[in-house]
C-alpha cells in the first residue's frame, strides 16, 4: 500500500511539473523589421481598391 502511494505521488508530481511548462519561444528584435502576426486579407488589393472606390462614390459625394 505504501509503495502504491509512493508511485502515485511520483506520478502526481510528474504531472504537476508538466503543467508548469512554459513556452519559451521569444521574438528576437531586429531593427526596422516587423515580426508580429501576419494580417490576412480575404480579397486582393486590386479588388479591395475597386470596391472601396465604388463605396466612396456611393456615400461620400458632395451635396
Amino acid at each position: 500500500m505504501i509503495n502504491q502511494l509512493k508511485y502515485l505521488s511520483v506520478i502526481m508530481l510528474t504531472l504537476s511539473m508538466t503543467a508548469c511548462y512554459e513556452d519559451t519561444d521569444v521574438t528576437f528584435y531586429e531593427a526596422g523589421e516587423y515580426k508580429g502576426k501576419f494580417d490576412p486579407h480575404s480579397q486582393t488589393k486590386e479588388e479591395r481598391s475597386a470596391i472601396l472606390a465604388k463605396r466612396f462614390g456611393q456615400v461620400q459625394t458632395d451635396r
Partner: peptide, 27 residues
Amino acid sequence: RLAEGKLPLCAEMCSTKSLLAGDGDIV
C-alpha cells in the same frame, strides 16, 4: 469595415461631409 467593402464610419456618417476618408487621390 474595410474587409466588408465599407469605409470608416466616422466619415461615412458625417452629416456635412466635412470628414472624408478613402483613396487619397479621390479625396
